[in-house]
Design a binder for these strands. Structure first.
Length: 280
DNA sequence: ATTAATGTTCAGAA
DNA sequence: TTTCTGAACATTAA
């Protein structure tokens, strides 16, 4: 589930407890879940990382990067239900990986927890890392977008803007929830072909993307009804209280107070919007 | 029993 | 070449 704001929250939540710490052990948790890495891989990785220091914790799009002193790194993609946690996992059955860390005489652990198990964890050397996080697979980070970049990227496709916003090669970090929220605030119809959006609207899109993502980070992301997403201490985020359209079908639009929020399906995924505010 | 869920990827078709 | 569709991954809850 996590999109850019939730992943950024995870990164900030674990940063102080991870940066500058050395790895004393890295293991797969003894859960009954289907493993997302094979044992030979695990042994190999463990060999390479034990006694190394994690120097940087950062985010690229919707991925968490734990970078070691030699430039190699763990790249964790939480996908739908993955969480990076320092404590209090929602349950112990779905803990997947554990890093045992140490600084001085103090030691503690960081976990990757994932209920559905769609998340991935990989370990790359410095060169591979640059490649897998580079422009071959990912467009510019949503927080690094500028007006000229938006123009350039949107000109590349005729797809409906809502669908284009989910294309990580066009712009990286936006997911299904924030795509609806961003387009609503920018007053752009989700059905508008990306390459036919006026400059005025692109400008609004740029501003609203930035504003919404930054605000959502401030609120530590969105925790929905199923409560899947939580911060590093297993606490709820609060941006869900600020949602204007997402999962609010049939409710009155909080902006125009006249339109009724509609749910449509685009590329097999729900889009929520106000037909009155977002007529084109 | 069925459906949908904040994500990504792949195959095959249009 | 680009775009679209459906299925797949695994799990839970309405």
């Amino acid at each position: 589930m996590p999109e850019l704001p939730e992943v950024e929250t995870m990164v900030r939540g674990i940063r102080d407890a991870v940066e500058g710490h050395s790895i004393t052990d890295f293991r797969r948790c003894p859960c009954a879940c289907k493993p997302i890495a094979t044992q030979p891989e695990m042994d190999e990785i463990r060999e390479l990382v034990v006694d190394r220091t994690i120097t940087k914790v950062w985010r690229r799009a919707k991925r968490v990067v734990l970078e070691l002193e030699d430039g190699s790194a763990f790249v964790i993609e939480p996908r739908m239900t993955g969480l990076m946690l320092l404590s209090d996992p929602p349950d112990i059955e779905h803990l997947r990986f554990q890093w045992e860390l140490q600084r001085g005489t103090k030691s503690h652990s960081v976990w990757f927890w994932d209920r559905r198990g769609l998340g991935t964890l990989k370990y790359f050397d410095k060169e591979q890392l640059a490649y897998v996080l580079g422009e071959t697979f990912l467009g510019p980070d949503a927080l690094d977008m500028t007006l000229p970049l938006w123009k350039q990227q949107l000109a590349k496709t005729t797809r409906e803007i809502k669908i284009a916003l989910l294309d990580q090669k066009l712009v990286a970090g936006i997911g299904n929830l924030y795509a609806s929220e961003i387009l609503h605030r920018a007053k752009i119809s989700p059905k508008t072909p990306a390459n036919r959006i006026s400059t005025t609207r692109i400008k609004r899109l740029a501003e609203c993307t930035d504003a919404i993502l930054r605000t959502a980070i401030k609120y530590e992301g969105s925790t929905l009804g199923d409560g899947t997403y939580r911060n590093a201490l297993n606490q709820d985020g609060s941006y869900q209280n600020e949602h204007r359209v997402y999962a609010r079908e049939k409710l009155t639009c909080p902006d125009c107070e006249t339109g009724v929020i509609k749910r449509i399906v685009q590329a097999q995924r729900s889009t929520f919007y106000c037909p009155r505010c977002q007529s084109r």
